[in-house]
């Protein structure tokens, strides 16, 4: 069996607003549009994914929060409705997803062997979080690839962002090893915003773009610092400053997704493909991808 490999890594933020604005048939709410910079960036990255041969998407989500280890979806099908607890007015999405249970079990096994506390989630009533659905829908609206969803263990809450970095790195190493042993071609998805301070009010028309801007300039400057480092291919440096970035901007990186993905990909020293940056209800959202294959790597923006 050939060694499995990671064929692309995607930073894919999950504000439900982008699904809302796309008006897919699965979502009950209706929008007049909005957040085009993000949506068009997502559309372009989705087109790139169509040109890549891969077997499964593996997504690390901040909205399946676990404190007792790292959990993996462990049943082949989940069909239900996901309602965002924060923005139920925008996101009520009827989903029907397939899971690559074999790959999930392999990751769970290898992570367990490396000392990480793990658990397979096999309750059929479990509801898939809106982070997983938003990122995966925007990257693959046809939903024709199986997923593996990994919960975010909240080390940053119990210990510190530094411990989060250590443990998410260890999980990334374990997942990379599991992918190699699986023989599969896998797309990794780190589902989160960068800076993550929200406005606590919402305009009467949520998609009114005249109201949308970053929460404050400090958040913007930090976000741009990370974008610059990504463009320069300095992902080890990004991860090294991750604890400070996370604390300064209340960043959603606190869940460990970007650290996990970069560790699994060996801390790329090549430029990230930048697909778009835009604020959503004050948070900073970047769509980016890391293509290990130089021949297909692009300068997008």
């Amino acid at each position: 069996m050939a060694k499995g490999e990671i064929v692309l890594g995607c930073l894919a933020p999950h504000p439900p607003h982008v699904v809302y604005a796309e008006n897919p048939e699965q979502n009950e709410a209706f929008a007049e549009g909005g957040w085009e910079t993000l949506r068009w960036g997502y559309n372009r990255l989705a087109r790139k994914l169509k040109s890549i041969d891969y077997d499964a998407m593996v997504i690390f989500t901040p909205h399946w929060q676990t404190y007792i280890g790292t959990h993996f979806l462990g049943l082949p099908k989940f069909k239900s409705k996901s309602v965002d607890p924060v923005f139920p007015n925008l996101f009520r999405f009827n989903y029907d997803i397939s899971v690559d249970v074999e790959l999930a079990e392999k990751m769970c096994e290898v992570a367990g062997e490396s000392g990480i506390v793990t658990k397979m989630m096999r309750n059929p009533d479990f509801r898939i979080d809106y982070g997983t659905i938003t990122s995966c829908h925007m990257l693959n609206p046809e939903w024709d690839k199986p997923l593996v969803t990994i919960s975010s263990n909240r080390n940053a809450h119990y210990y510190s962002p530094e411990v989060m970095n250590e443990q998410a790195s260890a999980l990334g190493d374990a997942c990379a090893k599991a992918i190699q042993e699986s023989g599969k071609r896998v797309v990794l998805i780190s589902s989160h915003s960068l800076s993550h301070r929200h406005f606590v009010t919402e305009s009467p028309l949520p998609e009114d773009m005249s109201r949308e801007h970053i929460y404050n300039h400090s958040q913007y400057v930090w976000d741009m610092k990370l974008v610059d480092l990504m463009r320069d291919g300095k992902m080890k440096e990004v991860i090294d400053i991750m604890p400070e970035f996370t604390e300064q901007t209340i960043a959603e990186t606190e869940a460990g997704g970007l650290t996990w993905m970069m560790a699994a990909m060996g801390y790329p020293e090549y430029p990230a493909e930048i697909y778009g940056y835009q604020s959503v209800i004050g948070t900073g959202n970047l769509i980016a991808a890391w293509d290990p294959l130089e021949a297909t790597r692009e300068i997008v923006l």
Binding site: I68, V86, K119, S151, T201
Partner: peptide, 25 residues
Amino acid sequence: PSIIGHQIQGHPEPEWVHVDDDFHY
């Protein structure tokens, strides 16, 4: 937890089958 202010359940008969994130087993 809420972000947009303070949310109050307003459905007359909310109904579902809930599973906890950590204690699903």
